[in-house]
Design a protein around this nucleic acid. Structure first.
Length: 804
RNA sequence: GCCGGUGUGUCGGAAUUGGCAGACGAGACAGACUCAAAAUCUGUUGUCAGCAAUGGCGUGUGGGUUCGAGUCCCACCACCGGCACCA
């Protein structure tokens, strides 16, 4: 009996599609289950074997859920705006729309050959005007609520993409996408106030089931810290406000540092005695890219401002002011009080510039040797009314004091910055705003949405930092929706993250032209029950979409505070050599080749069997053969099947245990051990040289979520029912049949194994111990010794501790 | 530097959360079938000693707790991911 996957797989894929068995219903009495994978960017390269891993994983869960009677929504779509498409279009003189269409067609064909149970009737595409109409609509709501604003600011500029980047898109000082140098550039940009949601983005993590590493990474990225702002007077009369997380060390502040960009310098340029030297330093540090600034962070530089000093508000002490690029203008107040005794960076700076180091927290080593930064153990000294207090108590007391005297107050700061939302490129959603000389930035009327991308001659980015749309005079020139005068359209487009920030909502009602989705659909399907995606999106897409969802909650569009109830993350599939799969490394494996040689079921099974789902695993062209062999052995069960509407007694326990194991393992994303248990079971079945129909039915159901085509085929060939996915239900196990009547236990003496024996599972302590002692080997080992202790661990072992 | 994680045969990886380490798969070796090969089937396969029964050693390193540690505690090493002059 030959297993011909090429005949079986397309046949069943077609049958499922024709019957629409994977279509989710919007008005259903059934309990819903919403499974989501990160929709792919349809690149020109097509799929590699890494793509199917998350798709298959949630397909396994979804197929199990359907068999359990749920109304399952497992959708897919295309995140199709983006630079690679645009760059390809420029290079080959094809419109990005055409490139996108072709890429999607290819991706779709590849994905469909995997037999994933996606509901293709809900397919979406972020570049479809009917879709991006609602992306633009959400932007307008953000704008109307003051959360989208335009600001002149220093931004990250990718020299190759000729486009600004969000902070999240800059990795090690280079562009996340093309690895080119990123420089600072002052530009007017659309910004989204994600910082307004910083606290909720942290606090509401308590409401969701995400892996700890994801939560930790988001919390880190948002970087909330609680400290105090303290006002220092200066001899110029103007005060300088500093931010510190260690207000308790205020008595140890021996100098102050302001960042090179701090406005104080310009304001008092004529009074600063060494202004030329200061200016030279400003120029020097402005030339450094962020990357260089980070690279050189070991070596502190700076210039002392001559002719001015600051006054420590708690002891009236005059301290010098420096400018140095180790203080950032974009965090806190751009100025710090420096306490070299208790801050490593201040300590390094003080050593280099020979500034006094005053110990105010005792408990560490000599502060002239190293800074003592531990907050848990120290006790305050040299600090007047704070002396003798712990760091924590001192913080409270000094904040009370500062507040009372009106010279400071408690303050929370975040590392998170607002989201730079405009891109100077063509292939993105137009920002639906016009600029009027009289009225400023004005939203276009919602009835004009979607604001479609105009056809242009050239989508080449311009060197002057303007979007390609800027040359489209006809399109750019318009009238102000408010006053009717001549006005100009915004020519920047939205970043790729826009369309993906809300796509999961569109799946619930993808063809709605009145709203992004109907209220009923949103109410029924929210939240996404299980969302699987890559770790690389933790501080990008995942954070952005949580932000948008919270905003939509605030304006009453969605009924829940969080978009995703549960998040899991898959490990990467690496090349055979253990390196990341990439074209340039030449280690890419194309799923088409695997499907051709072994079939989709083998590919799916191997992707789930390859290792721990959450960890990276190298592709092995040899190991996959084991999965193919297993499926062939399963296929050949049809040659030994016998009538029988029962599980044979000798296999009953193993069957029940396997049902339990597979059921639990799928829920706990332990697909590899679920498959291993099925392999063990088939080995046991072959040892008996036959299988009953009932046994084959159960086995097929358990295997179906992993290998849907072959199981459907066997279901049909062996007449197990009308159609597996159409009518069957997930097998149940009997807990009482999962436990053995007799168990094999180990008899140890002093922890060394002496014998193995079979005893009744419900055996009590004394019986078990005496049974063990009656074993010849055990008797010999304890002969003539004093028994100190006797231990029986139920169903596991007996240990007898003896001494001479 | 900070945060998170990992370390187990030749390889991918298991281990009911403190109870027989190495499930399952790959690879290798041997045998069966075959003129032969592939495929398939059967067996062996952590390591050292021994003809053997058997015994010693063994989960990155060093200590500890325990009748018992891959699992818990302390210290360290290596690697991976994230953040990084964030006051």
């Amino acid at each position: 009996m030959k297993y011909e996957h090429k005949k079986i797989e397309p046949k069943w894929q077609q049958a499922w599609e024709e019957k629409g068995v994977f279509h989710a219903e919007n008005n259903s009495e059934k309990e819903k289950f919403f499974a989501l994978i990160e929709f792919p960017y349809p690149s020109g390269q097509g799929l590699h074997v890494g793509h199917p891993r998350p798709y298959t994983a949630l397909d396994t869960v979804s197929r199990k859920r359907r068999l359990e009677g749920y109304n399952v929504l497992y959708p897919i779509g295309w995140d199709a705006f983006g630079l690679p498409t645009e760059n390809f279009a420029i290079k080959n003189h094809v419109h990005p729309e055409v490139v996108t269409k072709n890429n999607i067609a290819r991706f779709k064909k590849q994905i469909q050959s995997l037999g994933i149970s996606f509901d293709w009737s809900r397919e979406i595409n972020t570049t479809d005007p009917d879709y991006y109409k609602w992306t633009q609509w959400i932007f307008l709501q953000l704008f109307k609520h003051g959360l989208a604003y335009k600001k002149e600011m220093s931004v990250n500029w990718c020299t190759s993409c000729k486009c600004v980047l969000a902070n999240e898109e800059v990795v090690n000082g280079v562009c996340e996408r093309c690895q080119s140098e990123v420089v600072r550039k002052v530009k007017s940009q659309w910004m989204l106030k994600i910082t307004e949601y910083a606290d909720r983005l942290i606090d509401d993590l308590a409401l969701v089931d995400y892996p700890d590493r994801v939560k930790a990474q988001q919390i880190n990225w948002i970087g909330r810290s609680t400290g105090a702002e303290v006002n220092f007077k200066t001899t110029f009369g103007e005060d300088l406000l500093v931010y510190t997380t260690r207000p308790d060390t205020l008595f140890g502040a021996t100098y102050m540092v302001i960042s090179p960009e701090h406005p104080f310098v310009e304001k008092y340029a004529d009074k600063i005695e060494n202004i030329d030297e200061v200016r030279a330093y400003q120029v020097e540090s402005s030339k450094k890219s962020d990357f260089e600034r980070t690279e050189m962070n070991k070596d502190k530089t700076g210039v002392k401002l001559l002719g001015v000093s600051a006054i420590n508000p708690v002891n009236g002490r005059e301290i010098p002011i420096y400018i140095s690029d180790y203080v950032l203008i974009s965090y806190g107040t751009g100025a710090i009080m420096a306490v070299p005794a208790h801050d490593t960076r201040d300590w390094e700076f003080a050593k280099k510039f020979d500034i006094e180091i005053i110990e105010v927290v005792k408990g560490g080593k000599d502060v002239n040797e190293e800074a003592f930064t531990d907050c848990a153990t120290g006790v305050l000294v040299n600090s007047d009314f704070l002396n003798g207090l712990s760091v924590e108590d001192a913080k409270k007391k000094i904040i009370e004091y500062l507040t009372e005297k009106g010279i400071g107050h408690e303050k929370v700061n975040y590392k998170l910055r607002d989201w730079v939302f405009s891109r100077q490129r063509y292939w993105g959603e137009p920002i639906p705003i016009v600029k009027c000389d009289d009225c400023g930035y004005v939203a276009i009327d919602e009835s004009e949405l979607p604001l479609k991308l105009p056809m242009v001659e050239s989508y080449e980015p311009t060197d002057n930092g303007e979007s390609p749309l800027a040359n489209m005079t006809d399109w750019v020139e318009t009238t102000c929706p408010k006053c009717g005068k001549k006005a100009y359209r915004e020519t920047d487009t939205m970043p790729q993250w826009a369309g993906s920030s809300w796509y999961y909502l569109r799946y619930t009602d993808p063809h709605n032209d009145k709203a992004l989705a109907s209220e009923e659909a949103l109410k029924y399907w929210n939240n996404v029950d299980w969302y699987n995606g890559g770790m690389e999106h933790t501080t990008l897409h995942l954070l952005y979409s949580r932000f948008w969802h919270k905003f939509l909650y605030d304006i009453g569009v969605v009924p829940t505070k969080e978009p995703y109830s549960k998040r899991t993350s898959h490990g990467m599939i690496l090349g055979e050599n253990g390196e990341k799969m990439s074209k340039s490394r030449g280690n890419v494996v194309n799923p088409d080749d695997i499907i051709n040689e072994y079939g989709a079921d083998t590919l799916r099974l191997y992707e789930m069997f390859i290792g721990d789902f959450e960890k990276a695993a190298p592709w092995s062209p040899k190991s996959i053969k084991g999965c193919r062999r297993f499926l062939e052995r399963y296929y050949n069960l049809q040659t030994i099947v016998t009538d029988g509407n029962f599980i044979r007694p000798e296999l009953e326990k193993e069957f029940h245990k396997t049902i339990k194991k597979v059921s639990d393992d799928i829920e706990n994303i332990k697909f590899n051990t679920a498959i291993a248990s099925l392999m063990s079971l088939i080995n046991s079945i072959y040892a008996t040289e036959k299988i009953t129909k009932e046994e084959l039915r159960i086995f097929s159901l358990l295997l179906n979520p992993f290998a849907p085509h072959i199981t459907e085929e066997i279901w049909s060939v062996c007449s197990l029912g009308d159609g597996l996915v159409a009518e069957a239900s997930w097998p149940k196990y009997d807990e009482s049949k999962c436990v053995e009547d007799t168990v094999e236990i180990v008899a140890q003496v002093n922890g060394k194994i002496k014998a193995k024996l079979l005893i009744p599972a419900d055996c009590d302590n004394e019986t078990a111990i005496s049974l063990a002692k009656s074993d010849a080997k055990v008797t010999e080992a304890i002969n003539g010794m004093n028994i100190v202790k006797e231990i029986y661990v139920k169903g596991k072992l007996v240990n007898i501790v003896v001494k001479p």
